[in-house]
Design a protein around this nucleic acid. Structure first.
Lengths: 289, 289
DNA sequence: TTTTTCTTGTAATTTTATTTCATCACATTA
DNA sequence: TAATGTGATGAAATAAAATTACAAGAAAAA
């Protein structure tokens, strides 16, 4: 078995295992498979137990991890436990009637954090690139969303506007359809709806599509009517929770997506957009004490 | 040494050690001190090495962790390594000109996540309780903020409104002062300003204080003119970052604070607020496909 | 003071990790 | 086809680490 010295390992422990899988013998492969299938258990298992679980021998287990560049089996377990940490277990996030304000804050923040990482994990790099492509070329950008999603639309408008882009937010369902009717093939509509089934939004979206405008969907359900109509879908995912609707938690992720889009656009055309942004910024400073 | 069975432990491993310190003997204290001083090294040390490092015996080390509720010394090391998982280092969050869209997303999301945990860490439990007290008793709640903070105000209004509370958002600086003039001693103003120095907001806040209204400040700088006027200050903290103003990152945390406040209020008076919330919810369902 | 309780370190024991070594499987070459 | 080399493997030996048993000593209670 030949293995290069692994790079300073930003890579979580499990990826190393996966990468090595094809270059090792059958017994060692069984060990790798076992570890990949039960990573959370392995943290608490001894060499002997792993050997038994994978129908191999202790020696094979020990050698595997040494060859992978870990100082010892224990060393591997430490690394592994560190890469497995992020999921605050759901029972630790569940809000109970008797919780103190601070406990509630802890749990709400934990859920939000989890929503962010879950969402990031499920976003497709290709979809992001396409979104940026569409937005940077757009003549005009319209953000549509009602209710809670309307807030996201306003936020997006606020930020895109600072970049000097021609854009508008339509948080009012009545106006949405009318604005959609004005869009053309060079324009982009960004439709925001957690459920992806909001009638008012769908109505506006259909009109926009009829006019050949491009459509980016920001939604919480991958297979919704809205995402079927969209050129690109950016999905948020969030864990269930009592006392706090999924929609609310996913809004945090949507705002974060907007933030990231703004930064990505900025870097695509720093020359033009940077100038606008600076001007908007200095105009604000005068308003401070 | 008497120790209650530790609660489901939202608490990182080290806090347990710290809490137990005063209830144990001198040798055990030396062990605790050693671990608290070198947590990152301990992860890789054996029982014997820890015993040597702390001038105690192996038995003392092993017993300490068993008494603290860990299954074994190894079990403790696993927990410890999980609580020590290095936060994404700042150079891994810094956005560079050449970054791909996906990389930018990773970095923006990482920064947001960090902002959330930083903010939570700095929030004072007492301040949270007082905020909830003030809000639940309020006759009328006014959210004030301009620009980006105006979005937070709107979001807060949207959510508090669903609980059936008498509230309003004033994202327009002109109206802010007028609305503030209408407030009385039973009312609460929630002022949102990242810098805590926004003239328009301060103006409105002073008027509100003159009318003896209570003031909750949502700000990003602890020692700002705004927080001096406030009865309670809820602070957001966020790491520096290029291409993305601190204000933008901290907005995520502000929204999260609002979310948590809503949940906390709800649980304080589930009877009354739950009824309202249910009604608002069912009214929405009809708008879906 | 005496008795009891709790803490501690030494040493024995058990568990766990690592190394050694003989064997086997497979590929290459004669 | 047989001979040879290479690397993977597991049984067993060894080493290391963790845990427990126990007796001595300190502190608290009677």
């Amino acid at each position: 078995m030949v293995l290069e010295q692994p790079p300073a390992s930003l890579v979580p422990a499990l990826q190393k295992l996966h990468a090595a899988r094809s270059t090792v013998g059958s017994a060692t492969q069984r060990v790798i498979d076992f570890v990949l299938e039960h990573p959370n258990d392995v943290i608490h298992l001894s060499v002997t137990e792993v050997a038994e679980g994978s129908n191999s021998s202790e020696a094979t287990v020990v050698r595997l991890f040494q060859n992978l560049g870990f100082k010892s089996y224990q060393d591997f377990k430490i690394r592994l436990s560190q890469s497995l940490v992020p999921t605050t277990r759901s029972f630790e996030r569940r809000i109970e009637s008797g919780d103190t304000a601070y406990t509630i804050f802890q749990k709400v923040f934990a859920t939000s954090s989890l929503t962010l990482s879950d969402t990031l994990e499920h976003l497709e790099p290709a979809a992001l690139e396409r979104s940026v492509d569409l937005l940077i070329r757009a003549r005009r950008i319209t953000f549509v969303g009602v209710g809670g999603s309307g807030i996201v639309a306003l936020d997006a408008h606020h930020k895109f506007f600072k970049l000097g882009l021609f854009c508008e937010a339509v948080p009012d369902p009545h106006n949405a359809a009318q604005v959609a009717a004005l869009l053309g093939p060079d324009d982009v509509m960004v439709a925001i709806s957690h459920s992806g089934t909001t009638q008012d939004v769908l109505h506006a979206v259909r009109i926009a599509k009829d006019n050949n405008a491009s459509l980016i969907a920001l939604t919480g359900l991958a297979r919704s009517p809205l995402s079927k109509l969209a050129d690109v879908t950016l999905n948020t995912t969030s864990p269930e929770s009592r006392y706090r609707s999924e929609a609310v938690a996913s809004r945090i992720a949507q705002l974060c997506i907007v933030d990231a889009l703004v930064v990505a656009l900025y870097l695509r055309d720093e020359e033009r957009l940077g100038r606008h942004w600076q001007r908007a910024r200095t105009a604000l400073t005068e308003k401070r004490v």
